[in-house]
Amino acid sequence: MCRLLTPRLKEVLQGYPLYSQDGKGKDAVCCAIFALGSVRWFILEGNAEGGDTILFGIVIGLMEDEYGYVSLNELSELELDLTSRGMGKLQVRQQQNFQPTPLRNLNDQRLQGFLAGFEQ
């Protein structure tokens, strides 16, 4: 089993299957947040597929901020090796005790800047 697929995440994703929030913009509900260093994945939807869970959301902090799909298995395998700098290995972590929240209410300046680019 994927280390990031917690019972809580499974339960939350049942309320937000893929394509359930199309067109909602800032009113879409973020149901989970994952992070690795300064990179953050704001998860909006997800479905179990075979032995994996496919998620859809917004990634902030990579080369480009963007909407996209990500495999939960792949997220759980990501690792940043900083042992040469005395910091060990960093893995993707889920923000604990996060409650589903509309994107507009999240206090993340870079996320809000990204979302503002879609407003008319």
Rank of each mutant, 00 (worst) to 15 (best):
I60H: 10
I54G: 08
E79V: 08
G51E: 11
G86C: 05
G51C: 08
D81V: 09
V59D: 02
L90Y: 09
E74C: 10
I58D: 01
I58H: 07
S76N: 05
L44P: 06
L78Q: 09
V70Y: 13
V59Q: 09
S84T: 05
R40T: 00
L72W: 14
A48C: 07
G68F: 07
F42I: 00
G50P: 05
L62T: 01
Q91W: 14
S38T: 03
Y69V: 03
V59T: 10
R40L: 04
Q91L: 11
A35H: 12
G88W: 15
A48N: 06
E66S: 15
F34Y: 12
F42L: 01
G86M: 10
G68E: 04
F42K: 01
T53S: 05
G50K: 07
G37Q: 03
G61F: 08
I58V: 06
E66P: 09
E66V: 14
Y67G: 02
G68K: 13
E66F: 14
G57Q: 05
F56R: 11
R40P: 02
R85Y: 15
I54A: 15
T53I: 03
I60M: 14
E74H: 15
E66R: 15
L82W: 07
A48L: 08
L72N: 04
L72A: 09
E77I: 05
S76W: 10
N73L: 13
E79S: 12
A35M: 05
G51P: 11
R85W: 10
N47Y: 13
E77N: 11
N73D: 12
Y69T: 03
A35L: 07
V39S: 03
L75F: 03
L36C: 01
G51K: 14
G57N: 06
K89E: 07
G51V: 06
G68V: 11
F56V: 01
L62H: 08
E64P: 12
I60K: 15
V59I: 09
D65K: 12
E74R: 15
L75M: 03
Q91I: 05
I60A: 07
S84Q: 13
V39D: 00
N73E: 11
G37R: 02
E45Y: 08
Y67I: 01
G50E: 02
V39G: 04
E79F: 10
G88M: 14
S71E: 02
Q91P: 09
V70R: 13
L55D: 03
W41N: 02
G61W: 04
M63R: 10
V39R: 09
S76D: 05
E66M: 15
M87T: 04
T83N: 08
I54L: 14
G88H: 15
G37F: 03
T83V: 07
I54W: 14
G37H: 03
L78R: 10
E74V: 11
G68H: 11
T83D: 06
E49N: 07
L78G: 02
